[in-house]
Computed example of a mutant assay.
Amino acid sequence: MLLLLLLQVSASCLWLGQGEVVTSFERSCPQFFFRETPPNEALEPESPVWICQSYKNQHYFATLYDQERRIPVYSAYLYQPGPGKRPKTWLVEPQLMGSTYPKTMEREWTLLKYFNVSLEQLSKSQAILQDYKNLTGLNRGHLNPSGHHHNASSRTATFTLTNIVPQDAKLNGGAWNNYEQQTMMRKTQGCNTTYVVVGAVPGSSSIAKGRVNRPSHLWSSACCEVDTKHRKAWGVIAENDRNEVELLTLGELEEVLSQLYGREKVSLFDSDCPRD
């Protein structure tokens, strides 16, 4: 009994943060959405999971996860860039295996060693590190990039595989990186608060022997509050096999996504965010 208690205490010391699976963003972590309004149901996959991504007991962003395709549909966060080192630790989400597991992002080895979880069990619920090994022309592409956060805790929280998709390596290190680092900085000048929703359109191919979907497109949208009466918005989209990013109005991006998803009209932000 004492040994079990010591193991539990040791494991708790290794816990890196909370990545809580919830039933609603509006009730659990609405602060990452403009007017506390998430995108509408037009983006929802057949097997959606809502995750409030946290670190050290603080929520840092929200992710709608496609458990069947093992990629995020979108991640939503506040744009608050700052200096700092890029994290190296990769995390996974225990609660995707079931609500009895910890509400904490964990390293794979922590789950295997301290929670009697097998790698096969973990892999049934989500992508694992092995899925992203030995890729050709692709790498682990963040939806919510660590560079858009201002401290070590918020940057580390983005290094979960529930925030990652197989992204074209040239795009990830080229035009998409230019958008994340340069265009965003220019577009957000004068903004008091900038809400971001960035996502991936499911594609027709996959990696890891069919386990993880390779998106056909990546997209990002932003709604900036200049003051209480003035707002501005924009969006971008990129094909996931070309090193090009197209800058759009928010309305144009929603129209393109409505066509790509082929369902009802996509709405990414509350109607108070300008579409033109």
Results as ranks from 00 to 15, higher is better:
Glu239Val: 10
Val196Trp: 05
Pro166Tyr: 07
Gly190Asn: 09
Gln126His: 05
Gly174Gln: 13
Ser221Pro: 00
Leu161Phe: 11
Ser204Asp: 14
Arg155Tyr: 01
Asp168Leu: 01
Gln130Leu: 12
Ser125Ala: 15
His148Ala: 11
Gly210Ala: 08
Met184Asn: 10
Gln182Phe: 06
Arg155Glu: 01
Asp227Thr: 01
Ile164Lys: 05
Ser123Glu: 12
Asn144Lys: 07
Trp109His: 14
Ser154Trp: 00
Leu171Met: 09
Asn116Glu: 15
Asp241Gln: 08
Asn172Trp: 01
Ser118Asp: 02
Ser204Glu: 14
Met185Leu: 15
Val212Ile: 15
Asn243Ser: 12
Asn172Tyr: 02
Ser221Met: 09
Asn139Phe: 03
Gly235Cys: 08
Cys224Ile: 03
Asn139Asp: 15
Cys223Lys: 10
Ala175His: 11
Tyr114Ile: 02
Asn240His: 09
Leu143Met: 10
Gln182Asn: 14
Arg231Cys: 03
Gly199Ser: 14
Phe115Tyr: 14
Gln121Ser: 15
Leu161Val: 10
Phe115Glu: 06
His230Asp: 08
Val165Thr: 11
Gln126Cys: 02
Gly147Lys: 05
Gln182His: 11
Leu135Gly: 05
Thr160Phe: 00
Gly199Asp: 08
Asp168Thr: 10
Asp241Gly: 02
His217Arg: 13
Ser205Ile: 04
Val196Ala: 07
Ile128Ala: 02
Ser216Gln: 10
Leu143Phe: 07
Tyr132Gly: 02
Asn151Lys: 09
Thr183Pro: 04
Ala175Gln: 15
Tyr114Gly: 01
Ser204Cys: 09
Val198Gly: 07
Asn163His: 04
Leu218Ala: 03
Arg140Thr: 12
Gly210Tyr: 11
Thr156Val: 14
Arg211Asn: 12
Ser146Ala: 15
Gln121Cys: 04
Gly147Phe: 06
Asp227Glu: 05
His148Cys: 09
Lys170Ile: 13
Ala222Asn: 06
His150Asn: 15
Thr228Tyr: 05
Lys187Asn: 10
Ser118Thr: 12
Met185Asn: 14
Arg155Cys: 01
Val212Ala: 04
Gln121Thr: 11
Leu119Glu: 11
Ala208Val: 01
Lys170Gly: 09
Arg186Lys: 15
Leu218Ser: 07
Ser220Trp: 03
Asn178Met: 12
Gln167Glu: 09
Ala157His: 04
Lys133Asp: 14
Gln167Val: 04
Glu180Lys: 02
Thr110Tyr: 03
His217Ala: 03
Lys232Thr: 15
Val212Met: 04
Arg242Thr: 13
Gln121Asn: 08
Val201Met: 08
His217Tyr: 15
Val201Tyr: 06
Lys170Met: 12
Thr136Ile: 06
His149Gln: 13
